[in-house]
Amino acid sequence: MPSFDPKKITKIHQHLHSHLPSDPALRVKALETILVEKGMVKSENIDKWVEVYADDIGPKRGAHVVARAWADPDFKARLLADGSKAVDEMGFAGPASGHLKAVENTPESHNVVVCTLCSCYPFAILGMAPNWYKTAAYRSRVVREPRAVLAEFGVELSEDTAVHVWDSTAELRYLVIPERPARTEDMSQDELAKLVTRNSMIGTDRDLKIGSA
């Protein structure tokens, strides 16, 4: 049983700080080794999970959700009403999709997502969070100076465009629906999905380009 005692944890951290090897790869290896010894982990299962998150579960899932929302107004209504149900309908349920909220960009507004307290992220539809999303730089600044951070990503907004920052402080996770680019009326959902960047679904990209994929 866990102790739920922060003082005990602080002591363990201090011990680990001075006793574990410095190389993170060796630390993870040590953890995997002892868990295999304890029968709690199989290394071949770990290989498979890495494969699944490298090949299947990533931002292309989210891109298909966005493309379908663009192409299918009924689906978009369902996605905005209950994001979790809508992605489940597409077979994309998974870690952190239990309370999914979609927020939509408009010509007058821009949405951007952060977790200032840790690194919460909708893994099931966006896969692994980029490293920058988890850094002190992004977490500290995007709530306070979102326009400066967005400018670093190449997103320039007029003063009149409202920026809405969503700080994921509970178990709700956010998916930004970027605006559909003009002159894409003839595109299939698969073609549309290729226009949707990972960053546009976090909110650090805005104007999607045709032919950039």
């Binding site: 890495v50 990503f153 990972r198």
Partner: peptide
């Protein structure tokens, strides 16, 4: 500033994927 030029690959080292999977 934020490092906006990070490569898009899901994992940047083997241990990252293994830790995620564990």
């Amino acid at each position: 500033p934020v490092d906006v030029n990070e490569p898009e690959e899901p994992f940047h080292a083997d241990y990252e994927g293994r830790m995620w999977a564990i």
